[in-house]
């Protein structure tokens, strides 16, 4: 909710400021640390690992408990997705896909928290620490921060090369990069097209997730600007729609990762 001394524009801007350590205000910053993103992403990752580790320790081949059922259903779902898309050793790529799916899902779920809940608490804490609460910036949705989504997509980008070299060898990769898809005579066109294609992958992967969640967060912020009696219907509608987006974007990120690594690993 916008407080009395804030204009709507200030309210929105305030909500889109990261909690940073040092750093500049450049669009691509070489010095700023997004402490909020790093904090929430790590905490959510630890939540994921803790729950799944507990299930793994307790895992029996007998009658599974509720937690084990839940974890097993997710693992089987991910394993089947990997099986369908990737025909090679799954020892690394399946846990990778699981981590991406659950982690991104948890990131996205942060968007379902009330937009003002954590910022309000943080303003209190920040004020209590002797700072000006008006400058208490915090953003709770890691996937609405390009730093987080690009971290994932660049990791996948690196893995694309790793899997290319593993599947085809350096020579095979170079050959495909230079001669595919138009043949050796059209080498410059091939290089151009492949470069664009390779660069488009991490960009689209990161920006798709970021765009969806950033837009979702922004809509929630705008709904929060409405008078309280007008918030219920649009807030509920957007929330229900967003539950779909949250799951879908996590699934898309995982599936595209599998597809890219499969394309990298296999010969064409």
């Amino acid at each position: 909710m916008a407080s009395a001394e804030q204009t709507p524009a200030e309210y929105v801007t305030h909500h889109l400021q990261h909690l940073t350590y040092a750093g500049d205000k450049q669009f691509i910053s070489l010095t700023a640390w997004h402490l909020d993103t790093l904090f929430f992403a790590t905490i959510l990752g630890l939540v994921f690992l803790t729950i799944f580790r507990i299930a793994a320790v307790k895992a029996t081949s007998g009658v599974p408990g509720k937690l084990q059922n839940f974890v097993e259903s997710i693992i089987e779902f991910v394993d089947n997705s990997v099986k369908d898309g990737f025909h090679g050793p799954r020892g690394f790529i399946a846990p990778l896909a699981l981590t991406i799916f659950v982690w991104v899902f948890l990131w996205n779920c942060m968007d379902l928290l009330p937009v003002d809940l954590v910022p309000m608490i943080w303003a209190q804490v920040y004020g209590a620490m002797g700072h000006d609460p008006h400058h208490a910036y915090i953003r709770v949705v890691p996937s609405a921060d390009m730093s987080a989504t690009f971290a994932l997509s660049l990791s996948v980008f690196i893995l694309i090369f790793v899997y290319s070299f593993k599947g085809k060898g350096a020579g095979g990769f170079a050959k495909e990069f230079l001669t595919h898809p138009f043949g050796a005579k059209m080498l410059p066109a091939n290089v151009l097209l492949n470069t664009v294609e390779y660069l488009a992958r991490p960009l689209s992967l990161a920006l798709r997730l970021f765009g969806n969640l950033y837009a979702g967060e922004l809509i929630f912020i705008l709904i929060a600007l409405l008078p309280w009696w007008a918030q219920v219907i649009p807030g509920m509608g957007w929330m229900i729609f967003h539950i779909l987006v949250v799951t879908l974007q996590a699934f898309i990120f995982m599936t595209l990762t599998i597809v890219y690594l499969s394309m990298a690993y296999e010969h064409h």
């Binding site: 990261h18 940073t20 750093g23 205000k25 450049q26 669009f27 691509i28 910053s29 070489l30 010095t31 700023a32 640390w33 997004h34 993103t37 790093l38 992403a41 790590t42 990752g45 994921f48 690992l49 799944f52 580790r53 793994a56 693992i75 020892g91 690394f92 399946a94 846990p95 990778l96 699981l98 981590t99 982690w103 921060d145 390009m146 730093s147 987080a148 690009f150 971290a151 994932l152 660049l154 990791s155």
Partner: peptide
Amino acid sequence: QASIPSIVGQMIVFFIFVLFTMKYVW
């Protein structure tokens, strides 16, 4: 803003998580 230090830090965290999942969860 996209911050390069955050990206690098996040990538390291991500790889640690993946390795943990690969070794102790999956």
